[in-house]
Write a protein that binds this DNA or RNA. Structure first.
Lengths: 194, 194
DNA sequence: CCTACCGATCGGTAGG
DNA sequence: CCTACCGATCGGTAGG
């Protein structure tokens, strides 16, 4: 039921989906849904909480992996792409419709999302410090942009395409890692890790 | 009035904005709006048509500039970033809420958006052909990703920040152009060539 | 541009 | 899980 809600919210938007719509797709009448949930908002909250939790789990796994910044960045990007792929039908609802949560819940989610983004920034900053990434890297800009781009996969990724979500993540990582790599004219090439 | 609608649609979503809401921000009663427009949908259509037209104008200007692929890509990216910056309050409505247009209008917009994306792909392919960009570049993936990322600026760009939208575009171009540049020099993970 | 109002639909509840 | 229903609100119209 939460999954059906996610699919509808993603497709028609939270405000564009009625409880009767949701009932229809589940083969029952709208008001019957209230035997299982307390409110429409509760559905959105569960979708969003679930998505942000998946992100935080990924970040924790990657940060504690002991790998270098480059491998950590790869794991974050490919991991995130994989999350989008596995949850393709609900990810758009999570990434776009979260803003319709009531203030308190939305602020909590924004806080958790910022914490997730902080993991990216940490990896980027570590990579600048050890020469893996270019010195003039703007970790805030790169992290924000990267997450936008990865979440936007929910709008165009098709599971039946020729590339899996993880493969797409690898390609994205490939472009980004080269784009933010150390300046080749610099003297730091010896510290570059692959 | 269209601008006020765009601001509200961006903030609360198309379905989350009532004509009474819109009237409130304009200092009049909801039903009075119908002296100026035919329907709520008409407002969305104007917002979206305007946005897509700005994009197509940019593409045409760039494609006919006579510059090389690298300069054209820069002009597209910086130009698009500039469009988001100038229309910051309505861009999210254009980029996100267009999907709530009725079928016919939405398909027309999608077609125009595809044409705009085709301009990016053309520039990318030209750049691959003349060696400006790496040979294994996936023009479809790069174009889609690039446009997602640029449109997502509408969600976080603040005109009162330290960087202008164009400057942000330059930085994005800097990372991307290096990421998709030719392979010969010491990029990080450059073992793989087709 | 407002008042008054329309039928439709909304999220949700009561009672079984 | 359904029927019957609630008050609120929706996009939009008539008439001035």
């Amino acid at each position: 039921m939460v999954r059906a809600a996610a699919r509808l919210f993603a497709e028609r938007g939270y405000h564009g989906t009625s409880m009767r719509d949701l009932g229809d797709t589940l083969g029952l009448v709208g008001s019957s849904l209230y035997a299982h949930i307390g409110s429409k908002n509760e559905l959105l909250e569960e979708i969003v909480s679930n998505g942000v939790q998946l992100c935080l789990d990924l970040a924790e796994r990657v940060l504690s992996s002991g790998e270098g910044p480059l491998e950590k960045l790869r794991a974050l990007i490919v991991g995130h792409a994989g999350l989008v792929g596995v949850n393709i039908e609900s990810w758009a609802a999570f990434a776009i419709e979260y803003r319709f949560l009531p203030d308190e819940q939305r602020e909590r989610v924004v806080q958790l999302r910022d914490r997730y983004q902080a993991a990216y920034r940490t990896v980027l900053k570590d990579g600048v410090a050890d020469g893996t990434f270019r010195e003039d890297l703007d970790d805030h800009l790169v992290a924000t942009t990267l997450l936008s781009l990865l979440n936007a996969m929910s709008g165009w990724y098709r599971p039946d395409g020729e590339l899996s979500a993880e493969e797409l993540g690898e390609r994205i990582f490939d472009v980004i890692s080269r784009g933010i790599g150390p300046d080749e004219r610099g003297a730091i090439s010896s510290e570059t890790v692959t």
